[in-house]
Amino acid sequence: MLDTSGRYDHLPDAPGVGYKPQHFTDLMRDPGPVAWLEIHAENYMGDGGRPLAQLRALSEIFAISVHGVGLSIGGEARPDPDHLARLRHLTGWLKPSSFSEHLAWSTHGAEFMNDLLPLPYTGATLTRVAAHIDEVQSALGCRMLLENPSSYLAFAESTWSETDFLKELAKRTGCGLLLDINNVFISATNLGYSPREYIDAFPLDAVGEMHVGGHDEDKDDDGGPLLIDSHAKPVVDPVWALLRHTLAASGPKPVLVEWDNDVPDWPVLRDEARRASDILQPAE
């Protein structure tokens, strides 16, 4: 196998897309402005076959970001050592340009719930999540990025704002942050605050990557707006505007377009990446 170590030691400040196997051939032929790909770590933990063969081929051409959805970093229990070992194996051979996970939990006891579940922001959870991040970073031997969640509700017991909580985690552990602009828009709408104020309070210096994606619109019990993080639609204009606002303050960053459900044909996703590219490199 070719040694690709050091080929991409960080993600380029350019558009990336969440990789879907149905786009493999199109990506190889016509990537458009796409310079990097993000994969869900858990989908590449089989022993062989097409998924790993495709990933090996893609990693020769694109920078790769490994995005975990199963570590349960926000959970009460320590990260599962078996799962950490699988991640270490994957990042060991793939040598990705970035590893990221979520401020959320997904495992309880022996059960894996296959969703990103929320946690209260308190002094106790801060200490616990920081310890989990330390454990992950030392197991993988690299700095990780932690992603802000999409929220549908709040915990009455929370004593920290989400932005302060993330800022403090980055400070204590040295981890970077993955700023999901769509999640900010969803959470702000659902919990009644200003998305721009959230961005303005966010420690942008720690941001190593941004996400944009589509969401669904629903209503809560009182008829108020309830946005659902579905990744099944185009990015809406207010989210593009929020990305523009954020990049104006942060400078260029790697920006990922996520589309995980009802995945469109390649040209549609490529055009979304082009939109991100236009915002990253405004015409003179």
């Binding site: 969703d115 509700l153 709040a154 017991e157 919990l191 009644g192 605050y193 809560d220 019990d221 309830l226």
Partner: peptide, 20 residues
């Protein structure tokens, strides 16, 4: 203890996780 922005019980908001 799970609430909306106004402190009301989460109700349908919790159901999003259930449904997911």
């Amino acid at each position: 203890g799970l609430v909306s922005a106004t402190g009301a019980p989460a109700g349908a908001r919790y159901s999003v996780y259930r449904n997911n």
